[in-house]
Amino acid sequence: MIAALCEKYGPPENLVLREMPDPAPSSGEVLIAPARVALNFFDTLIIENKYQLKPVLPFSPGGEFCGRVVALGAGVKDFVIGQRVAGYCSYGAACSRLVLPAANLIAVPDNVSDDQAAGLFVTYGTTLHALRQRADLRKGETLAVLGASGGVGLAAVEIGAAMGADVIACASSPEKLRFAQDFGAHDGLDYSVEDIKEGLKKRTAGKGVDCIYDAIGGAYSEAALRAMAWKGRFLVVGFASGEIPKIPLNLTLLKGCAIVGVYWGEFVKREPQAHLDNMIQILDWTARKVLSAHVHSVYPLAEIAEALNVLKRRQAQGKILLSVRQ
């Protein structure tokens, strides 16, 4: 097999392609040939040793994929050789052969493409967990999405709209706002020219926002929190800006609101059935074209450095994928 390897920590340009022996599945495991591997912002952090997950060197980045079953370990009953599957693995997917426990995989419906299925776990899985289990988002509530045109932001726009929320996309340019509105946002706020607090208050007739989805962090977090409605929920999803904000806790007292952490990776481990139910819902929505699972671009595995740099520069609108030879 061929794998993109991080052999020393550093920028994407440090990654190398290596030929390696094919792995073999043990009991309860499945050998997969990934066709598409989705990259996420955290992949840019893992390879620089700046993420909470710290794999032993050498390792491959890539935490989600879609491919076909090549071989089955003893005791695996739910899959057959040649079947299309998608899955999540934290890291290690940027290769032409991958072994995972069968429990980490889900069958892909015929009317969901490889490109769509590869990118559904991290961004869409995180978002449905955030909005369903953590925020208990209700139909008719307002949802503000910070960084609404990126992979995770776009997922929040689409899933929020699918759940019946009034979605306000927040982004840094008119082009990004138009993009988010093409995928279900009902309104937009350009925070490069408009104050977030005043803008969100204006768009909610002074009431404030019921739910804020923040995968950006930095200076915008506190400003958005100040536009929170009574008993609102502020979802802490990530810190793509590179800055972890320090929130004045008196704001939660004055607004009776909650700051809620969203740690999808731990949720998957602790509540596997709820995670599976979420993924079944996401695949169903995708099959019925409720969700687009929009792809920004697809790069050959050999161009993984450029693909990761697009994420680092925050230029992606939708998912960044790798194409892997079979």
Rank of each mutant, 00 (worst) to 15 (best):
V16G: 04
V16H: 01
L17C: 11
L17H: 10
L17D: 13
R18A: 14
E19Q: 15
E19M: 15
E19I: 10
P21R: 06
P21F: 13
D22T: 15
D22Q: 15
A24G: 06
P25G: 07
P25S: 06
P25R: 07
S26Y: 01
S26K: 14
S27K: 15
S27V: 12
S27W: 03
S27N: 07
G28L: 08
E29R: 13
V30D: 02
V30P: 06
I32V: 15
A33T: 11
A33C: 14
P34G: 04
A35E: 14
A35M: 11
R36I: 04
R36G: 05
V37W: 00
A38L: 07
L39K: 00
N40A: 08
F42D: 09
F42V: 12
D43W: 03
T44I: 04
T44E: 02
L45I: 10
L45C: 12
I47V: 09
E48T: 09
N49M: 06
K50S: 12
Q52C: 07
Q52T: 06
Q52W: 09
L53M: 13
L53K: 07
K54Y: 03
K54Q: 14
P55Y: 03
V56H: 08
L57P: 02
L57M: 08
P58H: 10
P58N: 06
P58D: 08
P58V: 13
P58F: 10
F59C: 09
F59R: 02
F59S: 02
F59D: 02
S60C: 15
S60N: 12
G62H: 04
G63P: 00
G67W: 00
G67P: 05
R68Q: 11
V69S: 03
V70Q: 11
V70T: 05
V70F: 02
V70D: 08
A71I: 04
A71W: 04
A71N: 12
A71P: 10
L72E: 03
L72Y: 04
A74Q: 13
A74V: 12
G75E: 10
V76H: 08
V76Y: 12
K77S: 13
D78N: 10
D78F: 00
D78K: 09
F79H: 05
V80E: 15
V80S: 15
V80G: 08
V80K: 15
V80H: 12
G82Q: 13
G82R: 09
R84E: 07
R84V: 11
R84C: 10
V85R: 01
G87P: 05
G87I: 03
Y88R: 06
C89Q: 02
S90L: 11
Y91E: 09
Y91S: 14
G92V: 04
A93W: 01
A94S: 15
A94H: 03
C95N: 01
C95E: 11
C95M: 15
S96D: 07
S96A: 14
R97I: 11
R97H: 15
L98A: 07
V99I: 12
L100W: 00
N104K: 11
N104T: 06
N104F: 02
I106G: 02
I106L: 12
I106C: 06
A107C: 10
V108K: 04
V108R: 09
D110V: 13
N111P: 06
S113K: 08
S113F: 02
D114W: 10
D114F: 12
D115I: 01
D115R: 06
D115W: 00
Q116G: 01
Q116S: 10
F121V: 05
F121M: 12
F121W: 14
V122N: 09
V122D: 04
